[in-house]
Simulated assay, not measured.
Amino acid sequence: MPEGKIIKALSGFYYVLGKEGIIQCRGRGVFRKNKVTPLVGDEVSYQAENETDGYIMEVKERKNELVRPPIANVDQAILVFSAVEPDFSTALLDRFLVLVEYNHIRPLICITKVDLLDGGIGKLEQYAADYRNAGYEVILASSETLEGLEDLYPYLEGKISVFAGQSGVGKSSLLNALRPELELKTSGISHHLGRGRHTTRHVELIKIGDSGLVADTPGFSSLEFTEIEPTELNFCFPDIEQISEECKFRGCLHVSEPKCAVKAAVEAGGIPEYRYEHYKDFLQEIKDRKPRY
């Protein structure tokens, strides 16, 4: 039975890339019965008499999966945030980072639209340095001037990457700059709403370079911590997790406990105060979450 990878899902059809090319498939009814939904990125077995009449017979075991965007087997997440329009938000970036870390997906931060900064990039460079010190790779880029694109290419080779971020930050524009013949639809900021208009309506894997596959995904502006427990949040902040090993009490949540190494590091400037404030805000949000039954 031939095997392949789902590279696009649209209107109930799954487009599977196999040795014979791209085959249009439907999912078997047994998937619905067993509550298995094939996802872009899935490795599957399929049957097909021709390129437009195939059926997915089996979905292979996944190494990970995301709900929003719906995609599986992701190697890394390129978190695309704009310098302006919409303004760079460390709170939203940290929210994305927590969810990516929780799903054991390697994040890479890409800050776009640096060409639009009127007052220079000094403050942005400081943020970039903070996140690099926390253990993250950070690239400053522009789809207009092509700044930073050469730095991004090597990270994409041989991996499935998901481009994720708030609507209007320039994900599709960045993909167009990486591969101009795509001509993906882009749209500016809605000044009435203060955020970007959604231009991507489905998830699709796009080939970049020799061996990279990138998913342009629908933008979204809110993410909830529906699965993360209070004691797990620590592990989603690498800079906090590293220092937490020096806390006096095991299971320290770094809020009111005495002799907390994390709080001491914040006071000493070792952890940016805004990162710690986001950690506390997220922790409270998780504690306030309604229990699941």
Results as ranks from 00 to 15, higher is better:
residue 123 K to R: 13
residue 150 E to R: 10
residue 87 D to H: 12
residue 125 E to I: 09
residue 152 L to R: 05
residue 175 L to M: 15
residue 154 P to F: 07
residue 160 I to S: 12
residue 134 A to N: 02
residue 107 P to G: 03
residue 87 D to A: 15
residue 183 E to V: 10
residue 166 Q to E: 14
residue 131 Y to N: 00
residue 136 Y to I: 01
residue 94 D to C: 01
residue 150 E to P: 02
residue 164 A to L: 08
residue 148 G to V: 06
residue 171 K to P: 03
residue 176 N to M: 10
residue 112 T to S: 15
residue 122 G to M: 03
residue 86 P to N: 04
residue 132 R to E: 13
residue 134 A to Q: 04
residue 120 G to Q: 06
residue 141 A to W: 01
residue 153 Y to M: 12
residue 164 A to T: 15
residue 100 V to N: 02
residue 86 P to E: 07
residue 163 F to A: 11
residue 173 S to L: 09
residue 159 K to S: 14
residue 132 R to D: 04
residue 119 G to E: 10
residue 112 T to M: 09
residue 177 A to S: 14
residue 123 K to V: 12
residue 134 A to G: 05
residue 180 P to M: 13
residue 87 D to P: 07
residue 164 A to F: 07
residue 149 L to N: 01
residue 158 G to M: 06
residue 103 N to P: 05
residue 98 V to Q: 01
residue 114 V to H: 01
residue 131 Y to C: 01
residue 185 K to A: 10
residue 175 L to W: 11
residue 127 Y to D: 06
residue 177 A to M: 10
residue 160 I to N: 14
residue 151 D to N: 11
residue 105 I to R: 05
residue 108 L to T: 13
residue 164 A to S: 14
residue 122 G to P: 00
residue 97 L to C: 03
residue 186 T to Q: 04
residue 162 V to S: 14
residue 146 L to H: 14
residue 125 E to G: 05
residue 174 L to P: 10
residue 97 L to I: 03
residue 128 A to N: 02
residue 94 D to R: 00
residue 174 L to G: 12
residue 120 G to I: 01
residue 151 D to G: 00
residue 92 L to F: 15
residue 107 P to M: 06
residue 164 A to R: 06
residue 160 I to G: 11
residue 121 I to C: 09
residue 128 A to T: 02
residue 155 Y to K: 12
residue 161 S to K: 09
residue 172 S to V: 04
residue 102 Y to D: 08
residue 180 P to C: 11
residue 132 R to Y: 02
residue 95 R to H: 08
residue 151 D to S: 11
residue 101 E to L: 00
residue 183 E to F: 07
residue 126 Q to I: 14
residue 113 K to I: 09
residue 90 T to C: 04
residue 141 A to E: 05
residue 156 L to Q: 07
residue 183 E to A: 13
residue 98 V to K: 00
residue 175 L to A: 10
residue 140 L to C: 06
residue 100 V to H: 00
residue 99 L to Y: 00
residue 88 F to W: 09
residue 101 E to W: 01
residue 142 S to A: 07
residue 86 P to G: 04
residue 153 Y to L: 11
residue 116 L to K: 12
residue 159 K to M: 11
residue 184 L to P: 04
residue 137 E to F: 03
residue 133 N to A: 15
residue 124 L to I: 14
residue 179 R to G: 00
residue 85 E to V: 02
residue 109 I to S: 01
residue 168 G to E: 06
residue 150 E to T: 10
residue 137 E to P: 04
residue 121 I to N: 14
residue 127 Y to E: 11
residue 104 H to I: 07
residue 133 N to R: 14
residue 104 H to D: 12
residue 141 A to K: 03
residue 163 F to K: 07
residue 158 G to A: 11
residue 180 P to I: 12
residue 87 D to R: 11
residue 126 Q to D: 12
residue 145 T to G: 09
residue 170 G to R: 04
residue 143 S to Y: 07
residue 120 G to N: 02
residue 108 L to E: 02
residue 153 Y to C: 03
residue 104 H to S: 14
residue 143 S to A: 15
residue 176 N to H: 08
residue 151 D to F: 01
residue 144 E to L: 15
residue 144 E to N: 12
residue 118 D to E: 14
residue 175 L to Y: 09
residue 148 G to N: 08
residue 121 I to Q: 14
residue 152 L to N: 03
